[in-house]
Structures are given as structure tokens and as C-alpha cells.
């Protein structure tokens, strides 16, 4: 099953809405609660990344009986050095964003911890695509 949500850059009051919607769906599909937890944490982090850094983005989630595939694409500044961005505590977030309690530099490493597969592709000044997979029935 396919689900899609638009994400607006800079709209912190709505950050987490798309992830919550997906969470509801996963609960209704009777997916293992531990998997739901991991997936939602990863989705939320990725969603906040778009809100904090990009102009506009989209969350796509495909739920299958054996896995959940998630793709978040955005139009934005892109990531210059993906390897560096993956490091815990590394952040390019502005002071304003940090003051709001976001941008602690834990986002991508947290996503990695909570998913089974993670691919990031990015073009500077164009945008970023984050693809994540969580396998079911492995818990």
C-alpha cells in the first residue's frame, strides 16, 4: 500500500504530522509495535530534517507484508558531505532552528540506528533523497 504526504519547509508547527499519520496506519495494519516505533522515529527525524533545512518535500511510504519502504525527497540546499552529516552531533542547522530544539545533529545517525537499510543521495542546491527500509518479521 502506498501513502504520500507533502512536507512544508520551515513549518515547524506541522513537523511530525506526516509521521503521525503513517503511525496510525501502521497500528491499524497490526504491524509489530517495535517495528512501528523504529519506523516512526526514523520518519519523524527525516521529516524534521526537511522542515529544518529544505523548502519543500514529500514523504512516500510503501507498506508490504515483508517490509516498509520509505522515501523522503526534498527541494533544498542538499548535503555537501553525507559521510560527515551521518556523524553524531554534526549539524548545519541555523541558530534559530537550534533554539527551537531541533538540529542537534542526531537526525541521520538516529535514522540509521532505526532502519535496516538507508540510502542518501543529494545534490548541492538541488535537494536530497533519503530512502529507508525496515523489514518486518525480523523482531
Amino acid at each position: 500500500m502506498h501513502f504520500e504526504h507533502e512536507i512544508e519547509g520551515g513549518n515547524f508547527s506541522q513537523a511530525g504530522f506526516a509521521s503521525s499519520e503513517i503511525k496510525k496506519v501502521l497500528k491499524q495494519l497490526n504491524i509489530n509495535i517495535k517495528v512501528i516505533k523504529r519506523v516512526v522515529v526514523a520518519l519523524y527525524e527525516a521529516e524534521v530534517n526537511i522542515v529544518a533545512h529544505a523548502y519543500h518535500g514529500k514523504m512516500e511510504v510503501d507498506v508490504d507484508t515483508d517490509k516498509i519502504f520509505m522515501r523522503l525527497t526534498d527541494k533544498g540546499p542538499g548535503i555537501e558531505n553525507i559521510e560527515k552529516a551521518m556523524e553524531e552531533g554534526y549539524s548545519t542547522a541555523s541558530t534559530e532552528v537550534r533554539e527551537m530544539g531541533f538540529g542537534a545533529g542526531m537526525g541521520l545517525s538516529n535514522i540509521k540506528k532505526n532502519t535496516d537499510e538507508l540510502y542518501i543521495t543529494s545534490k548541492v542546491d538541488k535537494g536530497t533523497t533519503v530512502e529507508m527500509t525496515a523489514y518486518l518479521n525480523r523482531e
Partner: peptide, 20 residues
């Protein structure tokens, strides 16, 4: 113990059908 009332069906395939 959790006893979720949210699920549409125990079986995920069935739950997906119901959700559609």
C-alpha cells in the same frame, strides 16, 4: 501487556484489504 484496539485485522494482508 498491550491490547491494541487500533488494528483492523490480526492478519496484515487482511488488514491492508480492509484499509483500502
Amino acid at each position: 501487556h498491550p491490547r491494541s484496539m487500533m488494528k483492523l485485522d490480526e492478519n496484515m494482508t487482511e488488514a491492508m484489504k480492509k484499509m483500502k
